[in-house]
């Protein structure tokens, strides 16, 4: 029996690749390699924009991620939440949280909030959770002109007109920072926020999956998207910027080794294919 035949009969290729992959991402967790962690320019820009929100400014955090994307978007989401609430403490900023894509976003937004130290902050005066508002794109459009019309009550059923913090906050004229975390199309936020935010000089920052970053690049160049967070890479960078290294930094080694495996497999398979072509076998 030839070696090749023995391999193909005895070893399941899929299982072998999965096993190697799991080992490669498990090892750096147990013994960190310490690969360099670059902070991308858009990540730094997002941090600086949030840092520049004036005293008493209003920060809008839209959590539209889903459960499958949490591992990738979570580090960035937690870091932004921590930074936003640090601004609440330091500069008296106000935070508005809402979800408009699917219910999972609200649950995960609250999960991100659980990483934030809220002691001393008062609900309704420093921050407010509007919960899940069905309607997605229509909600994103309406919140630019009349927030209270789409959110007559907050997550807990309190009428928004009775919430002290929201007395003078209702439209893009009152916002100072727009942030969204999404695991679907990011252009929805651009087309509903872009024009008005650009006119008022309000920055738009979107935390997105690395798969959607290429789609965001034209908007970033055109200035309708002020900055973006490129999944866990940006999450890790943002953690360093706020001085609170967390899950993102720890994930980077494992992610890098997994990417190296993916590239090695692509080169291996393509190389094998080319060798077969050269040998005249298809």
């Amino acid at each position: 029996m030839s070696f090749r035949k023995w391999i193909s009969e005895r070893i399941n290729q899929d299982r072998t690749i999965f096993l190697i992959y799991l080992l490669l991402i498990a090892i750096p967790m147990l013994r960190p390699i310490g690969l360099p962690l670059p902070i991308e320019e858009p990540t730094r820009k997002a941090y600086e924009l949030l840092e520049k929100v004036p005293k008493g400014g209003v920060i809008v955090l839209v959590s539209d991620e889903g459960f499958p994307s949490w591992a990738e978007l979570g580090p960035g989401e937690i870091a932004v939440y921590r930074h936003a609430f640090r601004k609440v403490r330091q500069d008296g900023c106000k935070v508005i949280m809402l979800t408009c894509y699917e219910i999972a976003g609200m649950i995960l937004g609250e999960r991100a909030l659980s990483y934030v130290d809220l002691t001393g902050l008062k609900y309704g005066e420093d921050w407010v959770q509007l919960g899940y508002i069905p309607g997605y794109e229509a909600v994103l459009a309406a919140m630019m002109t009349d927030l209270k019309s789409i959110a007559p009550v907050d997550k807990f059923g309190t009428p928004t007109k009775d919430i002290p913090m929201l007395k003078n906050i209702n439209s893009i004229d009152d916002y100072d920072f727009l942030y969204a975390c999404t695991y679907t199309a990011m252009d929805v936020y651009i087309r509903q926020w872009g024009e008005k935010a650009l006119a008022k000089g309000v920055p738009i920052v979107i935390n997105m999956l690395s798969g959607t970053v290429p789609l965001a690049m034209p908007y970033y160049r055109a200035g309708t998207l002020t900055a973006y967070l490129n999944s866990v890479v940006a999450g890790a960078g943002y953690e360093l910027l706020i001085g609170q290294p967390g899950m993102g930094a720890a994930l980077m080694d494992a992610q890098s080794t997994a990417h190296i495996l993916a590239i090695a497999l692509i080169i291996f398979v393509q190389g094998l294919f080319i060798l077969r072509l050269m040998g005249g076998r298809r």
Partner: peptide, 17 residues
């Protein structure tokens, strides 16, 4: 890039594991 996204998702769980 979507493939890379899927890798990131499993990496996140591996950390907790």
């Amino acid at each position: 890039t979507y493939l890379m996204s899927l890798i990131s998702m499993s990496v996140g769980h591996m950390q907790t594991l």
